[in-house]
Amino acid sequence: MAKHVKHIEPYSPQFGTMIPLGSQKFLRTCVLWQIVRFVAINIRMTILILKSHH
C-alpha cells in the first residue's frame, strides 16, 4: 500500500489533504468498475438535466 504514496513534505499545503491509496487508484481505471460508474454518472446527469429545465 505504501508504494502508492510519494513523499509529502510535512507542513506543506499538500500535507493537509487526503491522498488516494492503491485500491482507490486501481478502481479509477478498472474497466469493469468504470463501466458501472459510467452508467451511474449518466443517470445522475440525466436527473440533473430533468430537474434544471423549467
Partner: peptide
C-alpha cells in the same frame, strides 16, 4: 443528492 463528484476513467468516457 444532486451535488456529486468523482474521478475516474468513466468520466473521461463521458
Amino acid at each position: 443528492n444532486g451535488t456529486t463528484g468523482e474521478l475516474g476513467l468513466a468520466a473521461h468516457w463521458v
